[in-house]
Amino acid sequence: MASSMKGRFKRFEHRFERILWRLRLIAILPVMMSLVSTVVAFVLGTLEIVKALVSLGDVAHTKKTFVAELLGAIVTGIDLYLIGIALLIFGYGVYELLISPIEAAREHDQGGGGLLDIRDLDQLKEKLVKVLVVALIVSAFKAMLTLPIKDGPSLAFFCLSVLLLALSGYLVTGSGGKRLF
């Protein structure tokens, strides 16, 4: 009798584990949504840059801040591209970690280590953090383009902002071959 119960429990456990294993496929939903969001971010970034370039052809450049606004629009496009790249990394990483390794990526792999080569959760986190910090640096740069410098304190804040951006870039890339993230 105990052997029969043990056999039933083992079958139940096996069925439950198979269902549990298949349930990981629900992760396809965030993968698909992040890939769709990537396309949207790339399209929006492209539209922003095209809009900026079209404004170059406008002959009525009477504003003093035209160059800053033009650069701001281009930087916004670049920022949207970086956000799209972060979404792409997220989608690929979730797919590779939870669903299946991407065989097509492995066929053309020349030693690995690419941005989309994600083998564990720490690599996914590291790559996302790097891209997002760069996106934040670009956003801060955009804000600095229109920052009015009228007196000593505003110049000091501007310089402090440049210093913090440089420090952020240094921390993300690492120093002397050592990786900090």
Rank of each mutant, 00 (worst) to 15 (best):
L87Q: 06
E13W: 10
G93A: 08
Y81S: 02
I74A: 04
L121T: 05
G114M: 11
F158R: 10
H61S: 09
F16S: 00
A73S: 14
V31T: 03
G177T: 15
V40T: 10
Y92H: 12
K10T: 09
M33I: 03
E69K: 02
L70C: 02
V75I: 10
P101C: 06
T65M: 06
P148G: 01
A68W: 04
V133E: 03
S139C: 10
R18H: 12
M32S: 13
K64D: 10
P148S: 00
A68Y: 01
D58R: 05
L71W: 01
S55G: 12
I149C: 00
Q123I: 08
G77P: 12
L121P: 02
K142F: 03
L167T: 02
V131C: 05
D58T: 03
K51N: 01
L115C: 08
D79L: 13
L80Q: 10
V31W: 06
L44Q: 04
E103P: 02
V138N: 03
M1S: 08
G7Y: 15
L25T: 12
G177N: 15
G93V: 07
K6H: 01
I49K: 00
R22W: 13
P30G: 04
E69W: 08
G176H: 15
V131S: 09
L124A: 05
V59P: 08
H61E: 13
A60R: 11
D109F: 02
L147I: 14
Y81I: 04
L132Q: 07
E107N: 06
G176R: 14
F158H: 09
H61M: 11
